[in-house]
Structure formats: C-alpha cells, structure tokens
Design a protein around this nucleic acid. Structure first.
Length: 420
RNA sequence: GUGGGUGUAGCUCAGCUUGGAUAGAGCAUCAGAAUGUGGCUCUGAGGGCCGCGGGUUCAAAUCCCGUCACCCACCCCA
C-alpha cells in the first residue's frame, strides 16, 4: 500500500522550505526588536483548555478540533496558540514573577476543516501575546509590530481592519440588542443566520449574504453598546496608531470567532488570497487569564497564517538564501574513493561546502551532475593526480582549469570564493 | 457537512465530445556524439494498473454506475 499525506497537510520540500525558514528567521529578528521572547508550548493540550478559552459555541470547538484517541485525559491538537501560551504563562508563574510578559511563538496549528485555498488542516502560525496590561499603548504596539513584520517580510497591499467589540458587559448588551432587532426580521435572514440567532448572534454581523448585510446595517448599533471606558480605550488606540502612521479601516461589522476577545479586534486581509483572505488577526482579551485560573490581567495578541502570508508574497525567489555547494569532487575510479573521501572530509572540516558522487558515474556524468548541482568548483582526482599528489581545480563559472598540490587546495578555493 | 471541477510518464499537460491497431508532447532523467571534462546543439534510450472497482460492447483512457483522492467555492477562520 502506498501512503499519502493526510488530507489538508503537505510536505514542504526545497526550495519552498527556504521561504518558510526565511520568514521564521526574519520574524524572530523583528520580535526581538520589540522586546518579545520566544516560547514553545506543546502542540496538544487538554481539550478542556480550548473549550474553556474559545467558547463552546465557537465553530472551532464545535466541529474543527482534532482530538487524540487516548485512554487518559481528553487531548486535542492545538487549533490556535493563545490558550496554550496563557496556560504556560500561569503554570510557570510568570504573573507572579514579573506580572507582565511579551511572548511570541512559531509553530503548527490544527483544525479539521475541509481544505481549500489558504485553508489547511495543519498550518503555521506566527503569533505573539502581550500579557499583563490594559494600556491602549499595548494594543497600538501590537498593531505596529504586525505592520513591521508584514513590511519586513515583503507583504504589500494588505489592509488592516479595526474594531472594538467592547467588554464582557458590552458584548452581552450588543448580543441582546441584535437578537431583539433581528428576531423581528427573522424570516429575511439566511438559513445560517437564523441558526446563528440562537447560537452566536454576533457572527451575523459578518455574514456575506446581501440581505443579511442590509438588515444588519439598518440597525443602528455602532455607538449604542460600548461603555464609556471601552469607547475611550478604543479612541485612544486609534489615536495612537494614527500617530504611528498606520493605515487602517474601521469596521463595526468585524467580529472574531473566538469567545475570548474583548475590546480591540483586528484583521489583516490581502486581495491575492482568494476566499480565505485574512493573513492575520488578533485583538485584546482581558478576561482569559482570569478565566483560566489566573489573576485579572489584560492581554493583547495576534497571529499570522504563514501559508497565507506566502500566498500574498510577490517575490518568493528573491528571498532564497545561498545554500549551494562550493565544490564537487570528481573521482575517476573506485580505487581512489578512500583518498577522495579524505579530501572531502578535509574540505568540509575547513568550512567548504562539498560533495561527491556515490552512484558510480562516469567522469562525464559526474561533471554533468556537478553542473546540475550548480557548484562553483569541481575538483578532479584521477590516476595522474593521485600519482603526483595534486588535484585539478576547475572553475565552473569561468571554465578554466588549473593544477594545485594537495596541501594548497583549501587555501586556493577559499581565496577564489572570497574573490566571488 | 453541501455544491462544482479535475484525476493519463518524475513534472506540466494533449488525447475523451464522435469507442478501434504498439496511448502522445514538452520539460526532467539516463546514454552517446574521436582526444580522462559540465552548460548549448544533435542522436538515442528508459519510464504508463489512463486514480480504483464494476458495467455496456467484438473492442473502453474514451460511454454508464459506484468509489477514493486532490483542487475551488459555501461554511468557518490565520
């Protein structure tokens, strides 16, 4: 039986993996600039952690969790990063130690969705959580950080959409307001939204259905539900990011699918992605830490979907690093192989990237292989070279070939490589 | 979970409408083209359960039924 990768997963080979690694490396640099420390948490957690954090009615908990078949506690492959980070934050008493932490993570997430463009069952998040403050400056910093990440990674043409869903009380108020208004027009709602009316009213706000949109737009809820604290906070965030010259669109229809969000929420969209157009999203969650058994601490976070981000990148090739071999060692007969291996090991010990053929090819075939590998130099070890203790060094770029005594080879190659 | 599309060589695809002989192309791979030597060019070679199972037929890559996989969209989300 031939096996294939599970649905919604993919193997990442060269050269694509270089694109990923580039993104990871650059992101780490930016996070460090902003004073964030990296954290790595398990890719599975107690299922109840996710149910508690994301909300029982959330789509993720309802139908997208990948649960592990174990005999002990219920375990689930993490569908997002925040819950695990907060769990770790509390488990290691970072709240008591410093009371404030800025953490970032990079790693795979899992959701059992039907795959399509920009939607995989295993996908990669780059995310961050700033825990321990309700200061609007922290919301602003997260938004600045997101723009700097995207800009440095080479993403162009993205849009930041910003909203505030208010605190827990405000959310409840908005909920009942919408429910009351929409209940009257229930028959005009789409099938899905009629269902949402009972389960998750807020989600009706971002229904794409025309008639639902109109109904929702007709309700004047924008300035009705937020308390003055939340309004002031939102206003402060907006003022701060405007001062930082960050472009954004305000939209009172933006809601997030996860329960834990309070106050500021945002989404980053890109037109090149197709239907799944969000490359990143985040917001404030002031109740999650206490909900998970910790103190009352405000927090803000975000996550970027790396695979989606790559879809939005224009020049993927330009980012490839130089990982080519410097030298290919051609050996003309099996008798010379052990001598060749010594030379090869010496080259590698001296920091020269080099390789040799293991498939008994002819000299000509080895040359062709060297060319396909795009090496800069070929070293030839043949009968004549072995007898007189020298090697032939061919510069594949220029096409010239010279002989050098064995002991001079490393120095010569290094000299030529530096000259470029 | 619901729709639509696509499965033919390692890769990208043609052939299917209207059934017919050894199933094709480009790229890739391998070998050769006097002098132990790559790139360009030329010559040649290998490589196919035509996704899988069934049916119709003298005959199926081609028509019919089923099934699986992938892609796209709904939904949801990063």
């Amino acid at each position: 039986m031939r096996y294939s990768a599970p649905r919604g997963t993919s193997d990442i080979l060269e050269p694509d993996i270089q694109v990923f690694n580039n993104i990871f490396n650059k992101s780490r640099e930016i996070f460090n600039l902003f004073g964030f420390n990296e954290i790595s948490t398990p890719i599975f957690e107690d299922s109840r952690l996710f149910i508690r954090s994301l909300g029982e009615v959330s789509e993720i908990v309802n139908k997208q969790m990948l649960n592990l078949a174990t005999k002990e506690n219920p375990l689930t492959l993490r569908p997002e990063g925040t819950a695990g980070i907060i769990r770790a934050f509390l488990e290691h008493h970072l709240d008591k130690e410093k009371g404030f932490a800025k953490l970032f993570y990079i790693g795979p997430m899992f959701r059992a969705e039907r795959p399509q463009k920009g939607r995989l069952r295993q996908f990669t998040h780059i995310g961050a959580e700033a825990i321990g403050s309700i200061h609007p400056g922290l919301d602003a910093e997260i938004l600045v950080l997101v723009t700097r990440l995207l800009n440095n990674l080479g993403v162009k043409g993205y849009t930041i959409i910003l909203n505030s869903v208010g605190c827990e009380k405000d959310k409840a108020k908005l909920n009942s307001l919408l429910k009351k208004e929409l209940e009257k027009k229930k028959s005009d709602l789409c099938e899905d939204c009629r269902d949402r009316l009972n389960r998750n009213v807020l989600r009706i706000l971002d229904c794409k259905n025309e008639s639902c949109r109109k109904l929702v737009q007709a309700i004047n809820f924008e300035n009705e539900f937020r308390c003055s604290d939340c309004n002031n906070h939102f206003q402060a965030v907006k003022n701060l990011i405007k001062q930082q010259q960050i472009d954004f669109q305000e939209s009172s229809f933006l809601v997030r699918g996860l329960d834990y969000y309070t106050g500021t929420v945002f989404e980053v969209t890109h037109p090149d992605l197709g239907s799944q157009d969000a490359i990143g999203a985040g917001g404030r969650y002031n109740n999650l830490v206490s909900q998970l058994g910790g103190p009352e601490l405000g927090a803000v976070g975000f996550a970027l979907g790396v695979e989606r981000l790559i879809l939005a990148l224009k020049s993927k090739q330009a980012q490839l690093p130089d990982n080519q071999l410097d030298v290919f060692l051609v050996v003309t007969s099996e008798d010379l192989f052990s001598q060749g291996l010594s030379i090869l090991t010496n080259l590698r010990d001296c920091g020269i990237r080099s390789d040799i053929d293991y498939t008994n090819r002819s000299l000509k075939a080895q040359m062709r292989l060297a060319n396909n590998l795009n090496v800069r130099f070929v070293l030839i070890l043949g009968e004549e070279e072995a007898k007189n203790k020298f090697l032939s060094l061919k510069d594949m770029k220029v096409g010239t070939q010279e002989k050098f005594p064995l002991e001079q080879i490393v120095g010569k190659i290094k000299e030529l490589l530096q000259r470029k």
